[in-house]
């Protein structure tokens, strides 16, 4: 039965989890990706393998919510744990199926900024966020990139202030020219919908909008000229069971709000 009472963040997480296929190697960054993988592992992807920057390699869901990528919960009954080297080296070897990241700004080519806003070369104008962390490595070398980001016109921008993490850079062919082994952005899930990328132009387009949203509402919350799929459709709402499983994973709402 479809849930009637849920937050957009919860739908974002449930919808995002469906982009993970069973048996895939998923490299999850800090924040909502940790909740999404926890949810995927106990629902449709029991054979998923989780990698984090903290060095966790595990085939089972952690016993509690991992708030950080080196969270103690990730190492209780984990499969292997020997540091950032071991998991990030797997990225460089091309063994990671899904690079799963967040960010502060994204452009139409899926380039992501998590460093800060303003003009870096004029320090007084620049507002620092955290920096790349592992997002750059994940998006450079993961076979495909899955991004999760709340919808906001300040986040979906024409040009990112600082290019931290490569999407398709300036368009078709550039990733290959630079020798990147990963395939680049595949899906972006926001609090309003689901985006994919055109195979020819590498540009982001809206594939789904969430229940209660509309193409126009999404466009109004996006600062670049958003392309819309001719087959754009409404996302199926989550089921009551999905929401209940999800709330169990993050009972205090640390990430789900």
């Amino acid at each position: 039965m479809h849930a009637t009472n849920y937050k957009l963040t919860e739908l974002m997480v449930v919808r995002c989890a469906k982009e993970i296929n069973d048996s895939e190697v998923v490299f999850a960054g800090v924040g909502l990706p940790l909740v999404v993988v926890g949810f995927a592992m106990v629902t449709h992807a029991p054979n998923m393998i989780l990698f984090t920057e903290g060095g966790s390699i595990r085939a089972t869901a952690p016993p509690g919510l991992a708030i950080t990528v080196d969270d103690p919960a990730l190492f209780c009954n984990g499969d292997a744990s020997f540091g950032m080297l071991s998991t990030m080296a797997a990225l460089q070897r091309g063994e990671v199926d899904v690079a799963f990241i967040g960010g502060a700004q994204i452009d139409k080519y899926g380039n992501i900024n998590s460093t800060g806003v303003g003009d870096w070369s004029k320090p007084e104008s620049f507002t620092y966020f955290a920096g790349s962390g592992g997002a750059n490595d994940m998006a450079t070398s993961g076979k495909r990139v899955l991004a999760i980001m709340p919808q906001d016109p300040k986040k979906f921008v024409e040009k990112v202030d600082y290019l931290t993490t490569p999407g398709f850079l300036d368009g078709p062919g550039t990733r290959k020219k630079l020798g990147m082994i990963g395939g680049g952005p595949s899906v972006v899930v926001s609090t309003m919908g689901v985006y994919r990328f055109d195979e020819k132009t590498c540009e982001m387009y809206l594939a789904e909008y969430f229940p209660g949203q509309s193409v126009d509402k999404v466009k109004a919350n996006c600062s670049f000229d958003l392309k819309i799929s001719p087959n754009v459709k409404e996302t199926e709402p989550p089921t009551e069971e999905e929401i209940s499983v999800l709330r169990n994973i993050d009972p205090t709402g640390f990430y789900l709000g």
Binding site: L91, Q92, T115, W120, S132, N136, D137, T140, S141, Y162, L163, T164, T165, P166, L169, T174, R175, L178, G179, M180, I181
Partner: peptide, 9 residues
């Protein structure tokens, strides 16, 4: 390293 190329870093 494989990363960092193509970015502002």
């Amino acid at each position: 390293v494989r990363g960092n190329i193509g970015t502002d870093m």
